[in-house]
Amino acid sequence: MTTAALTPAALHRCLADETRLTLILLLGTESELCVCELTEALAAPQPRISRHLAHLRRAGLLHGRRQGAWIYYRLNPALPDWIHPILEASRDAAPAAFVAARQRLIDAGTASRRQAACHAESTSALFSSTSGDIA
Rank of each mutant, 00 (worst) to 15 (best):
G28W: 04
H52N: 12
T39S: 08
F127P: 00
L61N: 02
A120V: 07
T29W: 07
G132R: 01
V99P: 07
A94L: 15
A43Y: 03
T29H: 10
Y73R: 06
E30V: 05
W70E: 13
E40Q: 10
S31I: 03
T110A: 13
A43N: 11
L53N: 03
P95R: 07
E40N: 07
T110L: 08
A69C: 06
T123N: 09
E30D: 12
L15V: 13
R65Y: 08
P95D: 04
P85R: 04
A101F: 01
P77K: 01
L61G: 05
G132F: 06
Q67C: 02
R65H: 14
P77H: 00
S31A: 07
D81E: 14
L33C: 09
Q115F: 06
L38M: 14
I83E: 00
A116F: 02
I71E: 12
F127T: 11
L61D: 03
A59R: 10
I49M: 14
H52T: 00
S122H: 13
P95C: 08
R74I: 00
S129V: 06
T29P: 00
A59V: 03
E32N: 12
R58H: 15
E88F: 02
I24V: 15
T29M: 13
P80V: 02
L53A: 04
C14L: 03
H55A: 15
G68M: 09
A9C: 01
A96R: 07
A97Q: 11
L126N: 00
L25N: 07
T29L: 12
S124I: 02
Y72W: 14
W70V: 08
N76E: 13
R48L: 10
R102K: 13
L27A: 02
R113Q: 12
P77L: 03
R58N: 14
A78C: 01
L62W: 00
T110R: 08
L53T: 05
E32F: 12
H55L: 14
D92G: 09
G132P: 09
G109P: 02
I106D: 10
A54P: 02
T22P: 06
T110F: 01
Q115C: 12
E88G: 01
I49R: 13
F98S: 07
G64K: 07
D17P: 01
A16H: 11
P95S: 04
S131R: 11
V35A: 15
W70T: 08
